[in-house]
Simulated scan of single mutants.
Amino acid sequence: MKFLYTHITSLLFVILMASCMSKPTTPPSSPNDITGKTWKLTELNGRPITLKNPKSNPHFSLHMKDMRYEGNGSCNGIGGTFEIKPEIMRIKFNQGMSTMIACEDLETEQLFLKALLTADNYTVNGNTLSLNKAKMAPLAKFVWQK
């Protein structure tokens, strides 16, 4: 009986040690997690965007490590800081910086930047992100592609 008890105790000890040495797993991100992804603009003020240069689609990414956003308005690089409360889907983009290159799609770029700076909340539906102001219609819609 003592022999069986010793083996069971040894086995439990080995299992415990193995579980302690395994790598920790990171919890899966929430479907509403909008950070660490590149969001491409598809719609502004309820209208699909039309670009003179379709290769320069406006986009942005949020980086939690330094609480910064970065992207491109269509021809100018943009960046700044942001604040986010994902549990209540609130967001605030702070005035940042932008390069100053003239381009064909400058009007779209200006509306895109205005939407970012005006937004105070967001919604996520599948791979679509909407930036909103209060409970009004979305200011801008984006799509994330894997």
Rank of each mutant, 00 (worst) to 15 (best):
T99G: 10
S30R: 10
M97F: 15
L129D: 08
T108G: 03
L12C: 12
A137S: 14
S10I: 12
V143K: 03
S130I: 02
M136C: 00
K40E: 08
T118P: 04
A119G: 01
E109H: 06
P54W: 00
C103K: 03
I15D: 00
L16R: 01
Y69N: 13
P48Y: 07
A137Q: 12
K23W: 09
S56K: 12
I84E: 09
F142Y: 14
L117S: 12
L117Y: 15
G79S: 14
Q110M: 08
E43P: 02
T26D: 08
R68I: 14
G73C: 14
I8L: 12
T128R: 14
G46K: 02
H7K: 06
E107N: 11
A115Y: 05
N127C: 05
C103S: 05
K92P: 06
L129A: 09
N53A: 08
G96M: 01
P24F: 00
I15F: 05
K65Y: 08
T35M: 04
W144R: 00
M89T: 11
C75D: 10
A115G: 10
I84T: 12
F60V: 09
I88M: 05
G79E: 06
N76K: 07
L16Q: 02
E70V: 07
G77V: 08
V14W: 10
G80E: 09
K23L: 12
K135I: 01
N57F: 02
M136Q: 13
K146N: 07
L106M: 11
H63C: 01
Y122M: 01
M136I: 01
K133N: 00
K135V: 00
L41D: 06
I91M: 04
F93A: 10
L131R: 00
T99D: 02
T9E: 08
H59C: 01
L16G: 07
P86Q: 08
M1I: 11
N76V: 13
T108D: 09
H7A: 14
I88V: 15
G80V: 08
M1K: 10
M21K: 07
V14R: 06
T38A: 09
T128M: 13
S22W: 02
S74P: 05
R68W: 06
K2C: 07
N72T: 09
L131E: 00
T118R: 12
G36N: 03
M136P: 00
I78P: 04
K133D: 00
G71Y: 05
H7Q: 12
K135E: 12
D105E: 08
S10W: 10
E83Y: 03
T108R: 03
N53L: 06
R90L: 11
A115N: 04
L116A: 11
S10F: 15
G80S: 07
P138L: 06
L4Y: 08
M1N: 13
T123I: 05
P28C: 05
